[in-house]
Amino acid sequence: MRVSEKIIEGLLWLSAVITILITIGIIWVLLSESIAFFSEVSIVRFLTEKEWTPLFADKKFGIMPLVAGTLLTTFIAIAVALPLGLTIAIYLNEYAHARFKQVIKPMLEVLATIPTVVYGFFALTVVTPFLQGFIPGLAGFNALSAGIVMGIMIIPMISSLSEDAISAVPRSLREAAYGMGSTRLQTAFGVMVPAASSGIVVSVILGISRAVGETMIVAIAAGQQPRLTLNPLVPIETITTYIVQVSLGDVPHGSLEYRTIFAAGITLFIFTFALNNISFWIKKKYQEKYD
């Protein structure tokens, strides 16, 4: 008995240690390759050049076009996912009958299980042609469709986390609002959403983090053309899609071109790391608001 417990304890410890080691390993590779990259290309160049053409003869190493592409698609995605996700969360909480809620929630979760490659083709072959119907200047590959579809993919994440946050608001607050003669709408927006705001913000940050890291949809539908623009109608490239493009191509290992993906990767890592920390911090800061 004691022995088997020791073994189990050891196994648990081992898996924790392995996880940590792997994380350290990843960061190590990312860092060492990036350092090698930045010894050849200065950080100033990396941050200020306006073009990203490491694979061309005339090499430019400005990360900003990729950052702009990432931010643009992310912004569009959140602009779609936040209003819809929050509306769904409020609807489920304040209006829907319990039985309807039981049906609709799993259906929403299905959205999250659709492979992103399917979303990508949906963006390219359905959404873009549809949008071209009333946006004449829309290119065949563009940030708009990719962003919108990415937003649809993120909806369940925001709606379900926000829904959890809203339903975690003590029932007594809802009763206080109703007891004062609030309508459902006033209760939802005047009391429940503000009281759940930290959880909602966290859901949005995790959504952003998901959008920043999303690869397949953008790779398929947004065009893979690094361009320093905030125009959603033209082809762009994001950090992740660039990494995929290079990893799949025939760039020799150890070359400067090869190392660009680590520089791009560490940029991405800094973004998502910061976002996750912000959400963690918000969660912690507002957790004790209710006893």
């Binding site: 003590p170 007594s172 607050l173 009763e175 206080a176 609002a177 109703y178 007891g179 004062m180 003669g181 609030s182 309508t183 009391v191 503000p194 009281a195 608001k289 209710y290």
Partner: peptide, 21 residues
């Protein structure tokens, strides 16, 4: 309308429930 009714009939609950405002 229930919201109108409740402006006429106020309620105080067992556990104090101020808004987080």
């Amino acid at each position: 309308r229930v919201d109108e009714l409740r402006k006429e009939v106020g309620m105080v609950f067992q556990k104090p429930n101020p808004f987080p405002k």
